[in-house]
Amino acid sequence: METQQQIDYHRIAEAIDFLKTHFREQPSLEAAAAHVHLSPYHFQRMFSDWAGVSPKQFLQYLSAEHAKDMLRHGNATLSDTAFETGLSGTGRLHDLFVKVEGMTPGEYKNGGASLQINYSFAESPFGTLLVASTHKGICYMAFADDGQEAAFRELQSLFPNARFMQLTDSIQQNALFIFGQDWRKLGTIKLHLKGTPFQIKVWETLLKVPPGALSTYAGLATAAGHPGASRAVGTAVGSNPVAYLIPCHRVIRATGETGQYHWGALRKSAIIGWESARHTQS
């Protein structure tokens, strides 16, 4: 059975899809509320509680014009100028990821035979998550859209020889504080990743894109030290094993279109808008 938070997310996601589709018509509050079968009053209140801003304000963050504006003014690059957008120092989440460690060749080759992996399920503003960790850090996080059993099978397929235990540990709890935005509780978030050296480099570069900012695939390729390798970088971004914490949702097309996302284009738009709304006000 879905939680109230999940029900609210699905309603807001449906509203976001409606606003995106009809953006150029600038739909009214009444029209958006009617689309998700709520009164304007309840829709306004639910949306504001979820996003921290009104539906009207949120609309501008989701528009292609907003993304293009960020690109034109440099906020979509990986340079330090991205921090001049009003983001607070505590919003520099990539600073918290001080250690990104790739698995050893042996761990990579043998499917994690020497690894003990703890995993648990948790709720986020964007749906149920499966989060998994080794003793070194978070190794996997994904949205469990097809149910917990299917999500666990996907995790097992990445580490077929590892030992698994359903256990919520401090590494997982610390990482999940990111959704609550209680920065005082955030310690150092460590990642223990299974990937090629090229993938690890791309994922590490992704961590430097701050909340509320965006990058293009070409910009990410340049920042990773591989200019001209946009296609390969795109493949590495699509192979990201840690949803949200490694912010592949912050990479968009050069045209300003949000593009695809492993966990759904609609969810990508919702996350971009949620981050933009909250961090622009921080």
Rank of each mutant, 00 (worst) to 15 (best):
P210V: 00
P105F: 01
I189L: 10
V251Y: 12
A254I: 11
P247N: 04
P125W: 00
A224D: 04
L186C: 05
F159Y: 15
R163M: 12
G112W: 15
E149S: 09
H249N: 04
Q57D: 08
D80C: 09
I171W: 00
G180K: 14
L266H: 09
A270M: 08
Q156R: 15
Q26H: 10
T205M: 11
S239P: 03
V202C: 04
G111D: 07
I189H: 05
Q44N: 07
A151I: 07
E84M: 11
S79Q: 08
G111L: 13
Y61P: 02
E2D: 12
L96H: 11
P211A: 00
H37T: 13
D145G: 09
E149L: 08
T168W: 00
P211D: 00
L191H: 04
G187M: 09
K136Y: 10
L59N: 06
S230W: 00
P40F: 01
A270C: 13
T134A: 06
V100W: 06
T205E: 00
R163H: 14
Q44K: 13
L193Y: 03
H42S: 13
L59Y: 10
P105D: 12
G86D: 05
Q166I: 04
P211G: 01
L87D: 01
H73K: 15
M70N: 06
L193Q: 02
I138D: 02
T104C: 14
I178T: 10
S124Y: 04
R92Y: 13
P40G: 05
L167P: 03
A150M: 13
L71H: 03
A232I: 01
E14N: 05
D80E: 15
F164L: 08
D145E: 10
S215M: 05
A13Y: 02
F159D: 06
R72W: 07
E14R: 15
A254D: 10
L167E: 14
Y119C: 05
K136L: 13
H262P: 01
Y9F: 15
S215H: 04
E25I: 11
P105Y: 05
